[in-house]
Design a protein around this nucleic acid. Structure first.
Length: 158
DNA sequence: GCCAACGTTGGC
DNA sequence: GCCAACGTTGGC
């Protein structure tokens, strides 16, 4: 199975790339995804070693801030069973969990964060899911070519 | 802060 | 099974 690539959105006020970098083992459980399309990707498609573009949303400027790596493939999201947790889902049967998570480890911070505007200016990126109008999927696939293009932009010296 | 786009819910 | 109402996401 060849390596695959993804883009994860996060509001940096909630959990930034820096927060990931300073987490224990630079790793976190990516929980709280409550959308079926995203769930299917987490549960069925993501594999250890896949590359992740870490995107900061709802901030000025919005950027791809760096990269991370999938270090644990999809497993039932523990927060759905915790009644005290804000992501608790009373309707999720423990023997057939509704929601899934992966573990993400920090990999790199771009020398030059790649702004949304910069992405829009690259003709070969015009098909990116992120740039499509109304696209709200919080974890989404990225092609190898998109991955290479964005990493090249990000790793340029400022 | 606004609101368009989207996903989910629930009445019928 | 349709679809209006509602809640949320996230760019602007």
């Amino acid at each position: 199975m060849p390596q695959q690539f993804w883009l994860f959105k996060s509001e940096p006020d909630v959990f930034s790339l820096r927060d990931l970098q300073t987490s224990p083992k630079k790793t976190t459980c990516w929980d709280g995804v409550r959308n079926y399309q995203a769930r299917n990707l987490l549960r069925d498609k993501m594999r250890i070693g896949d590359g992740v573009l870490y995107y900061h949303s709802r901030i000025e400027p919005m950027t791809v801030a760096g990269t991370a790596t999938i270090v644990h493939a999809g497993y039932p999201d523990p927060s759905q069973f915790n009644a005290k947790h804000k992501y608790f889902d009373a309707d999720s049967p423990p023997d057939a969990p509704r929601w899934y998570a992966v573990d993400l480890r920090y990999a790199s911070t771009f020398a030059t964060p790649v702004t949304r505007d910069a992405l829009r200016q690259v003709p070969t990126l015009e098909d990116m899911m992120l740039l499509r109008r109304g696209s709200r999927l919080s974890v989404q696939p990225v092609t190898a070519s998109q991955w290479r293009t964005i990493c090249a932009l990000g790793n340029k010296r400022p």
